[in-house]
Write a protein that binds this DNA or RNA. Sequence first.
DNA 1: CTGAAAGCGCTTACAG
DNA 2: CTGAAAGCGCTTACAG
Lengths: 340, 340
Amino acid sequence: MMENKSPTIADVAQQAEVSTATVSRCLNQPDKVKPEVRERISKAIKDLDYVPSGAARALASRRTYTIGAVVPTIDNAIFSETIQHLQSGLTQANYTLLLANSGYSLDEELREVRSLLSRGIDGIVLVGEMHRPEVFAAIEQQKIPYVNLWTYNPDSQYSCIGFDHIKAGNHLAEHLIDLNHKEFGIISGFQEDNDRALLRYRGIRQSLERAGLNIPESRIIQCRYSVEQANISLHQLLDKHPEITAVVCGNDVLAIGALSAARERNISVPEQLSITGFDNMEIIPFLSPALTTVNAPSRRMGSHAAEYILKQIENKSLDVERLELNAELIIRDTTGQAQK
Amino acid sequence: MMENKSPTIADVAQQAEVSTATVSRCLNQPDKVKPEVRERISKAIKDLDYVPSGAARALASRRTYTIGAVVPTIDNAIFSETIQHLQSGLTQANYTLLLANSGYSLDEELREVRSLLSRGIDGIVLVGEMHRPEVFAAIEQQKIPYVNLWTYNPDSQYSCIGFDHIKAGNHLAEHLIDLNHKEFGIISGFQEDNDRALLRYRGIRQSLERAGLNIPESRIIQCRYSVEQANISLHQLLDKHPEITAVVCGNDVLAIGALSAARERNISVPEQLSITGFDNMEIIPFLSPALTTVNAPSRRMGSHAAEYILKQIENKSLDVERLELNAELIIRDTTGQAQK
DNA sequence: CTGAAAGCGCTTACAG
DNA sequence: CTGAAAGCGCTTACAG
């Protein structure tokens, strides 16, 4: 524990024989400082290894150059893609991303939002449209730009960038109905705190009902988004309902688990059983069999979010914008004509 | 744009009829405040919707309750697992993780480290042992705890938590040698800024040489860690070297790409070609064929890192600790006896 | 157990 | 283009 402290802006000012105000300007608006002076300051900064204090800067300027995001989990490739692109958009503009995750719990999300807000952020992005009312209240009090990702609702009073999950569910179900499937099973993520999961599910039921098909409760399993859980779930489903010919999975991770269970039972896909995923993760097209799934525009949601937030900050505005992206059905090798 | 500002600690103090010092104490060391007073303050905080300013707190206390981490990418499930566990360990202690990524570039890593340091962090974790010298210099100046993850070197002068990549490479190669393979190919990640990739590679070569086997440059391809790149790479490798019977891949992602290419060529795995991965991502055991790979203790590295950093902060110490974790070979279905 | 006051290291009108 | 000085919202010895 040595005693030499980190240099401050005052040390730099002294060394460069200017005021702290000028050093500050040199850092933030270099063109307002005479080139000659600028050089002296730059040299002093280098000599002293000066690193500005973010805390002091944030306190004085009331800006943190930090954007907060709360996602359900980063442990799913699909959110990683969104985050990676969000981050790279922000980094380019010299902003940093402060990332938190809620573990798919709305209460935990609220806690994380509060923590981010307290820490100080200039903008915030969340996933989904459903949040605790306190989340909205807390964010609005701060008057910072805010956007919901992975959701599109034309009637939302908040900005959103995403796609229509009901429509996506419709497409998936219609594809299977076209293939003559009548006996469906569903392996969904937990829907309680997850509006995306819920809406996809509704979309599927909606289409089935339109086709005069019903799907009893016992053929619907909700589980954690893990390969292993889905594997177990498909076994349970088929133990009780061997008549099922098509299983709609809440995302690709679940579908991979379902595929592995089908393999364990020596059930051929898609001949005896059709399976669908959701998201279109990078590896999906390289697996065998390649999944029929819905392509979620995960990267574009991240880039657009960065763009939106930065624009609002720059304009000091809080415009509500709603951007609908496409999420098309991608038909590959795990869906086929229903047997018998 | 309304004019009402966010409440400050002074507002709370006034409302509760105490000094700001007492409010501060109530927030940070509640037991030092009389319960009755504490209640008044809590009420005032609720009534006013008071959120403390992280910036002011950090500036005054010289602590940010934030830990920084720079990883190569979050867009790889294996780092996500490390981060997830690091984060959850920190969150439990009321610390926040500030996450940056370097895109596997050491220069970018340096930039990110500087940015984190400037922003203010109480500890930092990096991946690998190889960093720009300025990284070490900048961190040491701040006198904050620091640990290298995903690496273990008993002679390192810095703390590290990880495993021995050379040894892991040895195991992989020895397994294939035992299966009588003599014609090897390697698909590695770029080794220039990645000591883990380099060391694994060295471990493989080392074992091959011990067995009297050599592997010409033309059978070694370095590429980005993407399924698609690995797919292309295996095609290239086999076009030039149809004699190859075993391909060692730098990680599971690459191995999945290689598997897909083998499938496209109608080469059966492992009968005609053995393929190995590295990491043992969650989905691997559920794929078909399931990969032979090395289990990287990704989650444990994250948890241990959180534990180490928090302990150093608590003790106000900067002890160097080196923790070696196990990375065992997991033999599954993609490796078999060499043909002919 | 509580309060007065200095100080953390910046930024930013304001004046020149 | 530059400087003096107030102020950002907390924490923390110090005194009582």
